[in-house]
């Protein structure tokens, strides 16, 4: 059985200290805006709620299987963006959830499209 959900548009933003913390989380002493910054926006409560609704977390752990980013512009700290996400799950290729996300600036111009593939692993002893 396949399911799909659309989330957004959501308001997303990362402050300069948050971007700096991510740069240093990737590499201690690192600086600048990491290419992977958009992944942070998937922590938005509405995205996480959609994921939780599609995943039986009592029976599974989630492994990040693949990720891609396509950049059509720069993403800056302290700047407001809008993000939409299309989540889909199905058994065509095993227990996986895919997330197609688009980030646009406030004028509607797309700055990044990114694709996330999560694999669900059964937990030993899960109900």
């Amino acid at each position: 059985m396949s399911t799909a959900r659309r989330v957004g548009p959501l308001a997303v933003r990362a402050s300069a200290p948050e971007v700096a913390a991510l740069a240093q989380g990737v590499l201690p002493g690192g600086s600048g805006v990491p290419d992977i910054l958009p992944i942070r926006f998937l922590a938005h409560a509405e995205v996480q709620a959609a994921l939780a609704a599609m995943t039986d977390m009592a029976r599974h752990v989630v492994l990040h299987e693949a990720q891609s980013f396509d950049f059509a512009g720069e993403i800056h700290a302290d700047t407001d963006y809008k993000m939409t996400c299309e989540l889909a799950s199905g058994n065509e290729s095993g227990a996986r959830i895919t997330i197609e996300s688009v980030i646009s600036d406030m004028s509607g111009t797309i700055v990044c499209e990114f694709h996330t593939t999560l694999r669900l692993l059964p937990v030993a002893g899960g109900a």
């Binding site: 948050e18 913390a21 991510l22 240093q24 989380g25 992977i36 992944i39 942070r40 922590a43």
Partner: peptide, 9 residues
């Protein structure tokens, strides 16, 4: 540190 900064739950 990475997980905290990336808000990876």
């Amino acid at each position: 540190a990475y997980a905290a900064a990336a808000l990876d739950p």
